[in-house]
Design a binder for these strands. Structure first.
Lengths: 232, 232
DNA sequence: CGATGCTTTGAATCTCGTCAAGATGTGTGG
DNA sequence: CCACACATCTTGACGAGATTCAAAGCATCG
């Protein structure tokens, strides 16, 4: 986890091919760098609190985090997992309608929202990038609505593995290293930890996956996993 | 339903306080009118097909419609209900990741997406309006994720009634006239028609609502309905 | 009026949640 | 290096809630 706290490598990310910085001219990158602040957090900390003023937005540099909503009754729903390169906090209401919380040690650039918006008015590239990010978020959220409304537990798991395969940096079909706990997966998929465990056990039993440790998933029968995930 | 097909009243809507046209100067309204085409559909028709090229966007003038996704396995999830003044089709991918289908007779303005985008580049007001619409859609979709992931059947219905109360034009706590079938409600809430029926029956039995006809809901105990809806 | 489609109700089944116990793994201090 | 405590994860038994299948009510419309 020391890597996550290494500031010298973090700055390199301004050149990376991440959605916010993609294809921007150096001038824009410089101005983004000027307005940004690098925040470093330990695992399990709030990056921003649900219902707090939504004046800041975040670009994850290293580590993993969740976007979560907790109701007055104490029920928790994870709206998304965010990984390096991902952008979070692009709410347009005055207050965050969700919280962002680190799963691992995390480093992230923090931008004042009004400054980022102001710069995006002058930079067509930046504005496009922000729009694309919003579009992706909406598309992913539609997928999740379908998942929660229509799929069974083991189907949700299959969808989840394929989703992680796409979004989690470094994930390969033979080796997906999950940075989140069973509770996090459960709160993302609208299940309980017990049901997640049982569904994983079932997928193992049926030979679709192998899981040497709880945090490691290896897909053995991709066709069957895809079919159960029912990607529309 | 003849009202829905009355073209003379439909045009008035360009002056209405609907999200897309809100606070626009007359010049912009005129250009919007020029590029638009009024479409009139009977109940149960596709306004646009899932997976078809997403070249058009729609502004509902009269009637009700659903935004739905149907998987390869034939399962259907309704992503949203849309009502007069609502805007639909703002997908940014090349193909619609959902279909739009009329519930009642519907009239709607159809805009070529590229023209609307081009005009929004010149009209700050229009651009803001579009952005606000997208923000609202995302916020509503987050609510639905929470609903589907965390709530029980009768809680989902309470949330649904309050949601309709806010969004359905003309709805009042004492009289919500639902334009959709039990099947549509079920596909929106991730339930079956039978469970919707039973949950409505339970809410009636418990004195929270009255329902003289299946399409008419009257909220009797707003506090309890709110509490069950668990608006976060 | 009968026919059709939508809604409701009933009974059996199944999936998932709950509660409880046991297994596994990790980190700490002896 | 081992032993113990604490977390997390897994498994089992049971029950609640939702689905499924079937049949019966209730409208609307020829």
């Amino acid at each position: 986890m020391l890597q996550a706290l290494d500031l010298s490598t973090a700055y390199v990310d301004f050149d990376n091919d991440c959605p916010l910085f993609h294809d921007l001219p150096q001038a824009d990158l410089n101005r983004l760098a000027e307005m940004s602040r690098l925040r470093v957090l330990r695992a399990g900390q709030n990056i921003c609190e649900q219902s707090s003023p939504s004046g800041r937005v975040f670009n994850i540099v290293s580590g993993s985090a969740v976007i979560e909503r907790i109701s007055s009754a104490g029920r928790r729903q994870i709206l998304a997992f965010v990984f390096p390169g991902d952008f979070a906090g692009l709410s347009n209401s005055a207050y965050f309608e969700y919280g962002i919380r680190s799963l691992t040690d995390v480093s992230a650039y923090e931008f004042p929202r009004h400054k980022l918006v102001a710069l995006s008015e002058q930079s067509a590239g930046l504005k496009d990038n922000i729009k694309n990010i919003r579009d992706l978020v909406l598309a992913l959220t539609f997928d999740q609505v379908f998942l929660l409304g229509q799929k069974r537990a083991h189907e949700r798991l299959c969808f989840f593995f394929l989703h992680m395969l796409e979004r989690l940096p470094g994930a390969r079909p033979e080796s997906i290293k999950l940075p989140m706990s069973r509770q996090d997966i459960a709160d993302y998929l609208g299940l309980t930890t017990e049901t997640v465990s049982r569904s994983v056990a079932k997928l193992k039993r049926d030979g679709l996956i192998v899981s040497p440790t709880p945090q490691t998933i290896s897909i053995r029968d991709m066709d069957s996993v895809r079919e159960l995930a029912d990607i529309s």
